[in-house]
C-alpha cells in the first residue's frame, strides 16, 4: 500500500512506465511499504504486458493469403466503382438539368398567364357594377395562397396543378372556369383578349362567360347550425 501523499504519482508512474522523479525515488528509498507496493505494481504491469504481447502477436496462419487469393479470384469482375460513380453522377446531373429546364418553362408560362389573369379579372370586376348576376353565380373567392396543399371539394381540376392559384368555385361555374383557363393557354387568344381590354363586353364575349361576382366567403358555424 502506498503512502497517501505518493499514491497517485507512484501508481501513474508504474502505469505509464516512466522514470521516477528524484522526489519519488527519495521517498521509495526511505519508505519500505511504498517500495514493496511499487514493486508489486510493476510486476502487475509486467504480467499484463507479457500476456498482452501473447494475445496481440499470434502466428499468422499460412492459409490466410491463399484463402484471400481464392476469394478474389471468385469475385466477378463487376463494373468498376469509379465508372459506376461517374455514370450515376452523369444521370443525376442530366435529371437535374431536365428538371430545372421544365421548371423554368413552366414558370415563364405561369407568369404570362398570371398577367393575363390579372388584366382579365380587372375587366370582370369593372363589369360587376353594370350587370345583374345570374342566380347560379353564388359566390366565388380567389384564394391568395398559391402553395396551399389542402384541396377543397369545389376546387377546379385546373387548380390542382401545383403552380396555379387555387380557386373556389360555385358548383355551376366549374365548366366555364375550365374553359377560361384552357383559353388562356392559347397564346393567340391571349393576345386578342389583351387587345380588347378596353371593352368589357368584348372581353366577356370572347371568354363566352357571364360576369363573376367576387365576394368574401360567409363564415360557417362549426356546430353545423
Amino acid at each position: 500500500m502506498f503512502c497517501d501523499a505518493y499514491n497517485k504519482s507512484l501508481t501513474q508512474a508504474a502505469a505509464a512506465e516512466r522514470e521516477l522523479t528524484p522526489a519519488l525515488q527519495q521517498h521509495l528509498f526511505t519508505c519500505e511499504s511504498c517500495r514493496t507496493a511499487f514493486a508489486e505494481e510493476q510486476s502487475l504491469f509486467t504480467a499484463i504486458d507479457s500476456s498482452l504481447h501473447t494475445v496481440a502477436n499470434p502466428e499468422i496462419p499460412a492459409t490466410l493469403i491463399p484463402r484471400i487469393h481464392v476469394a478474389l479470384n471468385n469475385m466477378p469482375v463487376s463494373e468498376s466503382n469509379l465508372s459506376k460513380w461517374t455514370s450515376t453522377g452523369a444521370l443525376i446531373a442530366a435529371a437535374l438539368v431536365l428538371f430545372i429546364t421544365l421548371n423554368l418553362k413552366d414558370r415563364k408560362f405561369q407568369n404570362s398567364t398570371e398577367n393575363v389573369n390579372d388584366q382579365a379579372s380587372t375587366q370582370v370586376s369593372v363589369s360587376r357594377s353594370g350587370h345583374s348576376f345570374p342566380p347560379h353565380a353564388e359566390s366565388v373567392e380567389r384564394v391568395p395562397s398559391r402553395k396551399t396543399s389542402a384541396i377543397h371539394p369545389h376546387t377546379a381540376p385546373v387548380a390542382m396543378t401545383a403552380n396555379l392559384p387555387e380557386v373556389l368555385l360555385a358548383p355551376g361555374q366549374r365548366e366555364t372556369t375550365e374553359r377560361f383557363v384552357q383559353a388562356m393557354r392559347n397564346e393567340q387568344f391571349r393576345d386578342e383578349l389583351l387587345a380588347k381590354k378596353g371593352s368589357k363586353e368584348a372581353v366577356l364575349e370572347a371568354l363566352a362567360m357571364k360576369p363573376i361576382k367576387i365576394e368574401p366567403l360567409a363564415p360557417v358555424s362549426s356546430t353545423g347550425d
Partner: peptide, 19 residues
C-alpha cells in the same frame, strides 16, 4: 474466427479500394 474476419475485411477493402 479471426481468419474468417481477416478474409472478409480484405475482401470488403478490395471492393472499395478504388474509392
Amino acid at each position: 474466427d479471426a481468419e474468417d474476419v481477416a478474409q472478409e475485411s480484405l475482401i470488403r477493402a478490395f471492393r472499395k479500394f478504388a474509392r
